[in-house]
Simulated assay, not measured.
Amino acid sequence: MADRREDVDWSRLFHAEGPASDTPRRLAALLGDDAKAFVDGYTHLWSTLRREGKAWPATAPTALLVAELLDDPLLGPDDPSLPDAMLAYLYVVGVAADLGEGAAEVRARVEDRAGELRAWTDAHLSADADGRARMWQDGTGLGELVLDQAALACFDLVPALLRRVLPHLASERARRSTCAAAAVGSLARHPSAAAQRPVLQDRLTSMARAAESSYDLATILIAIGHLGGDTRPWLTDPHAGVRGCAALAPGLTGDDTAERVRLGPAGSPRAFGDSFGDMAPPLQFQFRPYQDLLTPEGFLRVDEAGRLTPGGAAS
Protein backbone atom coordinates (compact mmCIF):
# COMPACT_ATOMS: atom_id res chain seq x y z
CA MET A 1 0.00 0.00 0.00
CA ALA A 2 2.81 2.43 0.84
CA ASP A 3 4.31 2.24 -2.64
CA ARG A 4 0.96 2.97 -4.25
CA ARG A 5 0.40 5.96 -1.97
CA GLU A 6 3.78 7.37 -2.98
CA ASP A 7 2.95 6.97 -6.68
CA VAL A 8 0.19 9.60 -6.43
CA ASP A 9 0.70 13.36 -6.18
CA TRP A 10 -1.93 13.85 -3.48
CA SER A 11 -1.10 17.55 -3.25
CA ARG A 12 -2.90 17.98 -6.61
CA LEU A 13 -6.13 16.34 -5.39
CA PHE A 14 -9.02 17.28 -3.13
CA HIS A 15 -11.99 15.60 -1.47
CA ALA A 16 -15.13 16.67 0.40
CA GLU A 17 -13.14 18.19 3.25
CA GLY A 18 -10.52 20.01 1.17
CA PRO A 19 -7.00 19.18 -0.11
CA ALA A 20 -6.20 15.46 -0.09
CA SER A 21 -2.61 15.69 1.12
CA ASP A 22 -3.79 14.10 4.40
CA THR A 23 -5.52 11.15 2.71
CA PRO A 24 -2.57 8.69 2.53
CA ARG A 25 -1.77 9.12 6.24
CA ARG A 26 -5.38 8.75 7.30
CA LEU A 27 -6.00 5.70 5.14
CA ALA A 28 -2.83 4.06 6.47
CA ALA A 29 -4.48 4.16 9.91
CA LEU A 30 -6.90 1.49 8.69
CA LEU A 31 -4.02 -0.97 8.97
CA GLY A 32 -2.88 0.18 12.40
CA ASP A 33 -3.90 -0.65 15.96
CA ASP A 34 -4.68 2.91 17.09
CA ALA A 35 -8.46 2.79 17.60
CA LYS A 36 -8.96 6.55 17.45
CA ALA A 37 -6.85 6.92 14.30
CA PHE A 38 -8.70 3.98 12.76
CA VAL A 39 -12.09 5.62 13.27
CA ASP A 40 -10.73 8.84 11.79
CA GLY A 41 -9.34 6.97 8.80
CA TYR A 42 -12.57 5.09 8.19
CA THR A 43 -14.63 8.27 8.39
CA HIS A 44 -12.18 10.00 6.09
CA LEU A 45 -12.45 7.19 3.54
CA TRP A 46 -16.08 8.06 2.88
CA SER A 47 -15.27 11.78 2.58
CA THR A 48 -13.43 10.93 -0.64
CA LEU A 49 -16.85 10.38 -2.22
CA ARG A 50 -19.54 13.04 -2.50
CA ARG A 51 -22.65 12.49 -0.40
CA GLU A 52 -24.59 11.97 -3.63
CA GLY A 53 -22.29 9.04 -4.41
CA LYS A 54 -20.29 11.01 -6.96
CA ALA A 55 -16.53 11.18 -7.32
CA TRP A 56 -14.07 13.79 -6.09
CA PRO A 57 -10.61 14.10 -7.65
CA ALA A 58 -9.22 11.99 -4.77
CA THR A 59 -11.71 9.15 -5.33
CA ALA A 60 -9.93 7.16 -8.05
CA PRO A 61 -6.52 6.85 -6.34
CA THR A 62 -8.29 6.13 -3.06
CA ALA A 63 -10.30 3.37 -4.71
CA LEU A 64 -7.10 1.74 -5.93
CA LEU A 65 -5.74 1.76 -2.37
CA VAL A 66 -9.00 0.29 -1.09
CA ALA A 67 -8.81 -2.52 -3.66
CA GLU A 68 -5.36 -3.37 -2.29
CA LEU A 69 -6.61 -3.21 1.29
CA LEU A 70 -9.09 -5.98 0.50
CA ASP A 71 -6.33 -8.58 0.58
CA ASP A 72 -4.14 -7.03 3.26
CA PRO A 73 -4.00 -9.26 6.38
CA LEU A 74 -3.46 -6.16 8.51
CA LEU A 75 -6.97 -4.88 7.70
CA GLY A 76 -9.11 -5.66 10.72
CA PRO A 77 -7.69 -9.04 11.74
CA ASP A 78 -10.23 -9.05 14.59
CA ASP A 79 -13.09 -7.61 12.55
CA PRO A 80 -13.89 -9.61 9.41
CA SER A 81 -16.55 -7.05 8.40
CA LEU A 82 -13.95 -4.47 7.37
CA PRO A 83 -13.23 -6.01 3.95
CA ASP A 84 -17.01 -6.01 3.46
CA ALA A 85 -16.96 -2.24 4.03
CA MET A 86 -14.17 -1.87 1.47
CA LEU A 87 -16.29 -3.77 -1.05
CA ALA A 88 -19.22 -1.47 -0.27
CA TYR A 89 -16.94 1.50 -1.02
CA LEU A 90 -15.97 -0.02 -4.35
CA TYR A 91 -19.66 -0.56 -5.15
CA VAL A 92 -20.23 3.19 -4.76
CA VAL A 93 -17.15 3.97 -6.86
CA GLY A 94 -18.65 1.74 -9.56
CA VAL A 95 -21.86 3.78 -9.38
CA ALA A 96 -19.89 7.04 -9.68
CA ALA A 97 -17.95 5.62 -12.62
CA ASP A 98 -20.98 4.35 -14.52
CA LEU A 99 -20.60 6.67 -17.51
CA GLY A 100 -21.29 3.99 -20.11
CA GLU A 101 -21.14 5.22 -23.68
CA GLY A 102 -21.20 8.79 -22.34
CA ALA A 103 -17.56 8.47 -21.29
CA ALA A 104 -16.35 9.57 -24.72
CA GLU A 105 -18.32 12.80 -24.54
CA VAL A 106 -17.07 13.53 -21.02
CA ARG A 107 -13.49 12.83 -22.12
CA ALA A 108 -13.82 15.24 -25.05
CA ARG A 109 -15.13 18.04 -22.80
CA VAL A 110 -12.39 17.47 -20.24
CA GLU A 111 -9.63 17.44 -22.85
CA ASP A 112 -11.04 20.55 -24.54
CA ARG A 113 -10.76 22.57 -21.31
CA ALA A 114 -7.77 20.84 -19.72
CA GLY A 115 -5.85 24.07 -19.11
CA GLU A 116 -8.82 25.76 -17.47
CA LEU A 117 -9.42 22.73 -15.28
CA ARG A 118 -5.82 22.78 -14.05
CA ALA A 119 -6.06 26.49 -13.24
CA TRP A 120 -9.39 26.05 -11.43
CA THR A 121 -7.98 23.14 -9.41
CA ASP A 122 -4.86 25.14 -8.49
CA ALA A 123 -7.03 28.00 -7.28
CA HIS A 124 -9.29 25.64 -5.36
CA LEU A 125 -6.37 23.97 -3.59
CA SER A 126 -4.85 27.30 -2.55
CA ALA A 127 -8.11 28.88 -1.37
CA ASP A 128 -9.46 28.80 2.18
CA ALA A 129 -12.78 27.10 2.99
CA ASP A 130 -14.83 30.21 2.21
CA GLY A 131 -12.99 30.75 -1.05
CA ARG A 132 -13.54 27.15 -2.10
CA ALA A 133 -17.25 27.47 -1.36
CA ARG A 134 -17.46 30.60 -3.55
CA MET A 135 -15.68 28.85 -6.41
CA TRP A 136 -18.51 26.34 -6.77
CA GLN A 137 -20.80 29.29 -7.53
CA ASP A 138 -18.47 31.12 -9.92
CA GLY A 139 -20.70 30.54 -12.95
CA THR A 140 -17.97 28.97 -15.09
CA GLY A 141 -19.15 25.38 -14.70
CA LEU A 142 -15.53 24.35 -14.20
CA GLY A 143 -16.15 22.89 -10.76
CA GLU A 144 -18.73 20.45 -12.09
CA LEU A 145 -16.43 19.62 -14.99
CA VAL A 146 -13.64 18.85 -12.51
CA LEU A 147 -16.03 16.37 -10.90
CA ASP A 148 -16.85 14.91 -14.32
CA GLN A 149 -13.11 14.51 -14.78
CA ALA A 150 -12.98 12.68 -11.43
CA ALA A 151 -15.76 10.34 -12.55
CA LEU A 152 -13.83 9.71 -15.77
CA ALA A 153 -10.73 8.79 -13.75
CA CYS A 154 -12.85 6.25 -11.86
CA PHE A 155 -14.29 4.96 -15.15
CA ASP A 156 -10.78 4.33 -16.47
CA LEU A 157 -9.87 2.50 -13.26
CA VAL A 158 -12.91 0.19 -13.18
CA PRO A 159 -11.36 -2.77 -15.08
CA ALA A 160 -8.54 -2.96 -12.50
CA LEU A 161 -11.00 -2.68 -9.61
CA LEU A 162 -13.21 -5.42 -11.05
CA ARG A 163 -10.25 -7.80 -11.27
CA ARG A 164 -9.51 -7.24 -7.57
CA VAL A 165 -13.15 -7.76 -6.53
CA LEU A 166 -14.02 -10.90 -8.52
CA PRO A 167 -12.13 -13.39 -6.30
CA HIS A 168 -14.23 -12.30 -3.33
CA LEU A 169 -17.35 -13.76 -4.93
CA ALA A 170 -15.96 -17.10 -3.77
CA SER A 171 -15.51 -16.02 -0.15
CA GLU A 172 -16.60 -18.53 2.46
CA ARG A 173 -18.16 -15.66 4.39
CA ALA A 174 -21.67 -15.14 3.03
CA ARG A 175 -21.71 -11.42 3.74
CA ARG A 176 -18.31 -10.94 2.05
CA SER A 177 -19.44 -12.67 -1.13
CA THR A 178 -22.69 -10.68 -1.05
CA CYS A 179 -20.83 -7.37 -0.80
CA ALA A 180 -18.59 -8.53 -3.63
CA ALA A 181 -21.70 -9.29 -5.69
CA ALA A 182 -22.96 -5.74 -5.12
CA ALA A 183 -19.60 -4.31 -6.20
CA VAL A 184 -19.50 -6.53 -9.28
CA GLY A 185 -23.03 -5.39 -10.13
CA SER A 186 -21.85 -1.81 -10.53
CA LEU A 187 -18.29 -2.35 -11.77
CA ALA A 188 -19.16 -4.89 -14.47
CA ARG A 189 -21.46 -2.40 -16.18
CA HIS A 190 -18.26 -0.95 -17.65
CA PRO A 191 -18.11 -1.41 -21.44
CA SER A 192 -14.89 -3.41 -21.13
CA ALA A 193 -16.78 -6.08 -19.15
CA ALA A 194 -19.48 -6.66 -21.78
CA ALA A 195 -18.11 -10.07 -22.76
CA GLN A 196 -17.92 -11.13 -19.11
CA ARG A 197 -21.48 -10.20 -18.22
CA PRO A 198 -23.26 -13.41 -19.28
CA VAL A 199 -20.87 -15.49 -17.16
CA LEU A 200 -21.22 -13.08 -14.25
CA GLN A 201 -25.01 -13.16 -14.55
CA ASP A 202 -24.90 -16.95 -14.27
CA ARG A 203 -22.49 -16.75 -11.33
CA LEU A 204 -24.67 -14.27 -9.43
CA THR A 205 -27.81 -16.25 -10.21
CA SER A 206 -26.22 -19.36 -8.70
CA MET A 207 -25.29 -17.31 -5.64
CA ALA A 208 -28.87 -16.04 -5.37
CA ARG A 209 -30.26 -19.57 -5.46
CA ALA A 210 -27.90 -20.60 -2.67
CA ALA A 211 -28.39 -17.49 -0.50
CA GLU A 212 -29.45 -18.30 3.05
CA SER A 213 -30.74 -14.87 4.11
CA SER A 214 -33.25 -12.49 2.58
CA TYR A 215 -30.72 -9.65 2.93
CA ASP A 216 -28.07 -11.47 0.92
CA LEU A 217 -30.57 -12.66 -1.68
CA ALA A 218 -32.08 -9.20 -2.20
CA THR A 219 -28.64 -7.58 -2.50
CA ILE A 220 -27.55 -10.13 -5.09
CA LEU A 221 -30.79 -9.71 -7.05
CA ILE A 222 -30.18 -5.98 -7.44
CA ALA A 223 -26.69 -6.79 -8.74
CA ILE A 224 -28.16 -9.28 -11.22
CA GLY A 225 -30.53 -6.59 -12.44
CA HIS A 226 -27.65 -4.17 -12.91
CA LEU A 227 -25.99 -6.62 -15.27
CA GLY A 228 -29.13 -7.31 -17.30
CA GLY A 229 -29.85 -10.68 -15.72
CA ASP A 230 -33.26 -12.25 -15.17
CA THR A 231 -34.79 -11.77 -11.71
CA ARG A 232 -38.33 -12.88 -12.64
CA PRO A 233 -38.13 -16.17 -10.68
CA TRP A 234 -38.05 -14.12 -7.46
CA LEU A 235 -41.06 -11.91 -8.20
CA THR A 236 -43.17 -14.48 -6.36
CA ASP A 237 -40.76 -15.03 -3.47
CA PRO A 238 -42.56 -15.21 -0.10
CA HIS A 239 -40.37 -12.40 1.27
CA ALA A 240 -41.69 -8.92 0.41
CA GLY A 241 -38.25 -7.30 0.39
CA VAL A 242 -36.87 -9.93 -1.97
CA ARG A 243 -39.82 -9.48 -4.32
CA GLY A 244 -39.35 -5.69 -4.26
CA CYS A 245 -35.66 -5.91 -5.13
CA ALA A 246 -36.29 -8.43 -7.90
CA ALA A 247 -38.85 -6.05 -9.40
CA LEU A 248 -36.28 -3.24 -9.71
CA ALA A 249 -34.32 -4.95 -12.49
CA PRO A 250 -34.19 -2.64 -15.53
CA GLY A 251 -34.86 -5.68 -17.73
CA LEU A 252 -38.35 -5.92 -16.24
CA THR A 253 -39.50 -2.63 -17.71
CA GLY A 254 -43.10 -3.09 -18.76
CA ASP A 255 -43.47 -6.43 -16.95
CA ASP A 256 -46.96 -6.42 -15.39
CA THR A 257 -45.96 -8.63 -12.46
CA ALA A 258 -42.94 -6.48 -11.63
CA GLU A 259 -45.05 -3.34 -11.75
CA ARG A 260 -47.59 -4.84 -9.35
CA VAL A 261 -44.80 -5.95 -7.01
CA ARG A 262 -43.36 -2.42 -6.93
CA LEU A 263 -46.70 -1.08 -5.72
CA GLY A 264 -46.12 -2.89 -2.40
CA PRO A 265 -42.97 -0.99 -1.34
CA ALA A 266 -44.42 2.20 -2.83
CA GLY A 267 -47.36 1.90 -0.47
CA SER A 268 -45.15 1.33 2.57
CA PRO A 269 -41.40 1.94 2.26
CA ARG A 270 -41.08 1.42 6.01
CA ALA A 271 -42.64 -2.03 5.77
CA PHE A 272 -40.22 -2.80 2.93
CA GLY A 273 -37.27 -1.88 5.18
CA ASP A 274 -38.74 -3.69 8.18
CA SER A 275 -39.12 -6.86 6.14
CA PHE A 276 -35.39 -7.41 6.57
CA GLY A 277 -35.75 -7.57 10.34
CA ASP A 278 -32.71 -6.44 12.30
CA MET A 279 -30.75 -5.92 9.09
CA ALA A 280 -30.84 -2.66 7.18
CA PRO A 281 -32.24 -2.89 3.64
CA PRO A 282 -29.78 -4.29 1.07
CA LEU A 283 -26.41 -2.61 0.70
CA GLN A 284 -27.44 -0.63 -2.38
CA PHE A 285 -30.21 1.12 -0.41
CA GLN A 286 -27.61 2.78 1.81
CA PHE A 287 -26.59 4.96 -1.14
CA ARG A 288 -28.18 6.93 -3.93
CA PRO A 289 -30.04 6.30 -6.19
CA TYR A 290 -31.62 3.42 -4.26
CA GLN A 291 -31.70 5.45 -1.06
CA ASP A 292 -34.16 7.77 -2.82
CA LEU A 293 -36.60 4.88 -3.25
CA LEU A 294 -37.28 4.66 0.49
CA THR A 295 -40.03 7.27 0.21
CA PRO A 296 -43.72 6.81 -0.63
CA GLU A 297 -43.04 8.14 -4.15
CA GLY A 298 -39.73 6.38 -4.74
CA PHE A 299 -40.84 3.02 -6.11
CA LEU A 300 -43.58 4.69 -8.16
CA ARG A 301 -40.95 6.82 -9.90
CA VAL A 302 -39.34 3.60 -11.06
CA ASP A 303 -42.68 2.68 -12.62
CA GLU A 304 -42.93 6.04 -14.37
CA ALA A 305 -39.38 6.00 -15.73
CA GLY A 306 -39.39 2.30 -16.45
CA ARG A 307 -35.84 1.82 -15.28
CA LEU A 308 -33.41 2.35 -12.44
CA THR A 309 -29.70 2.04 -13.04
CA PRO A 310 -26.86 2.43 -10.54
CA GLY A 311 -25.58 5.46 -12.39
CA GLY A 312 -28.65 7.58 -11.81
CA ALA A 313 -32.03 7.63 -10.12
CA ALA A 314 -35.21 7.48 -12.15
CA SER A 315 -36.27 10.97 -13.07
Rank of each mutant, 00 (worst) to 15 (best):
residue 208 A to R: 06
residue 267 G to S: 08
residue 91 Y to N: 11
residue 83 P to N: 01
residue 163 R to G: 05
residue 31 L to G: 14
residue 134 R to N: 12
residue 112 D to H: 03
residue 29 A to I: 00
residue 288 R to W: 12
residue 269 P to F: 09
residue 76 G to F: 07
residue 254 G to M: 05
residue 62 T to H: 09
residue 172 E to F: 14
residue 9 D to R: 11
residue 296 P to Y: 09
residue 52 E to L: 09
residue 314 A to H: 13
residue 262 R to S: 13
residue 47 S to F: 08
residue 28 A to M: 07
residue 58 A to N: 07
residue 94 G to W: 02
residue 238 P to T: 09
residue 289 P to R: 11
residue 79 D to W: 00
residue 30 L to M: 15
residue 27 L to H: 11
residue 32 G to P: 02
residue 285 F to Y: 10
residue 301 R to E: 15
residue 229 G to F: 01
residue 77 P to E: 12
residue 210 A to E: 15
residue 255 D to V: 02
residue 196 Q to G: 05
residue 33 D to V: 11
residue 246 A to V: 05
residue 180 A to Q: 07
residue 96 A to K: 04
residue 233 P to H: 02
residue 128 D to Y: 09
residue 214 S to F: 10
residue 288 R to Q: 13
residue 136 W to G: 06
residue 212 E to I: 00
residue 160 A to G: 14
residue 139 G to H: 05
residue 282 P to D: 03
residue 115 G to N: 12
residue 66 V to Y: 12
residue 202 D to Y: 01
residue 20 A to P: 06
residue 178 T to C: 11
residue 159 P to L: 07
residue 249 A to G: 05
residue 76 G to H: 00
residue 113 R to F: 04
residue 74 L to M: 13
residue 287 F to V: 07
residue 11 S to T: 15
residue 242 V to D: 08
residue 124 H to T: 05
residue 158 V to H: 01
residue 1 M to P: 11
residue 5 R to P: 01
residue 213 S to H: 13
residue 208 A to N: 06
residue 80 P to H: 13
